[in-house]
Design a protein around this nucleic acid. Structure first.
Lengths: 158, 158
DNA sequence: CAGGGGTGGTTGAAAGCCGGACGACCTGTC
DNA sequence: GACAGGTCGTCCGGCTTTCAACCACCCCTG
């Protein structure tokens, strides 16, 4: 038996779909117009910039950015062509490679970051009260944990 | 001067990106595996099913689903191949076409709806208290309104 | 230390997506 | 009633994503 969404739930759900789609597009477009990179590119650069020696294993980076291995591989191809990232062989595991942020990549990130942060503030954070934003973050943290955990049988909760 | 995100804001922002990406993927994959349609397809079918005579102008449908005209056109191509939707000429405006839900499309929607609703509940609604979910919806409604409105100069708010 | 199963990452082909250009058509104005 | 400017939907070219196959390598087991 399906328990349907009542009218209010449906309204909230549509607001969710609507807002998340629009926000993602807007932030990505702003980055692209100002700096020629997408939001996905930006997130890769951020991860690398935070990593020790500004390098990460491909698979780790794929997990962190929620990309498939194949997708990340292509994406790194492009970033490599743009000289924002380069690949290097992994010392300890000869199957592996590291993605390394180039100096040019670092500079690009430093330039793009204000655009990104301003967008996040303008189109999200500053539209809400601090409590609202905190509640949003906490609620979505629950969702993220749920979706990220290996699928437990639902019964386990009973 | 850029006002950076503090550590807490950053945590919330990452939860946002993480959860919205995962949730979208999960719901789309569930639909695809069970019924061979994506979330975007599903939303088109829903809009058509709710419209008078189960038909809508292409441009209206594009706006409603936040798709570019070009993207919608391709998407309708696919749905037409799958016999879920068909096109028909618009009577009152010879430039236009209507997308019409076929009987088969209606049946597919009726079949897919329980999967979708169950997913939304399992991975979002039922993870939160009713208040949390309502707050989420209301906060995102603010965001959606903001992003949807024609760009006012920021000064207008002062 | 040989073999088998698993993992890391890349690749190519096919499908999907977007922006921009386009032809067709509508509508207001003179 | 002609024309200018807008709107409707499609199409083209180029890029992105996905899927599945693949090679190279690791590691465990016997």
């Amino acid at each position: 038996m399906t328990r349907w969404l009542d009218e209010t739930e449906q309204r909230h759900w549509r607001a969710y779909i609507y807002a998340t789609t629009l926000l993602h597009e807007k932030l990505s477009r702003e980055l692209q117009e100002a700096h020629g990179i997408t939001l996905a590119d930006y997130e890769i650069l951020v991860r690398l910039s935070e990593a020790p020696d500004r390098r990460l294993r491909m698979s780790h980076l794929a997990d962190a950015t929620l990309a498939s291995r194949s997708r990340l591989s292509h994406q790194i191809d492009r970033l490599e062509k743009a000289d924002l990232v380069r690949r290097e062989a992994c010392e300890t595991d000869r199957r592996g490679s590291n993605a390394v942020l180039t100096d040019h990549g670092w500079d690009a990130l430093v330039e793009a970051a204000p655009t990104h942060v301003a967008g996040v503030r303008e189109h999200l954070v500053d539209l809400l009260t601090p409590e609202q934003f905190a509640d949003l973050g906490n609620a979505l943290a629950v969702v993220a944990r749920h979706l990220n955990s290996p699928d437990l049988p639902a019964e386990q909760l009973a």
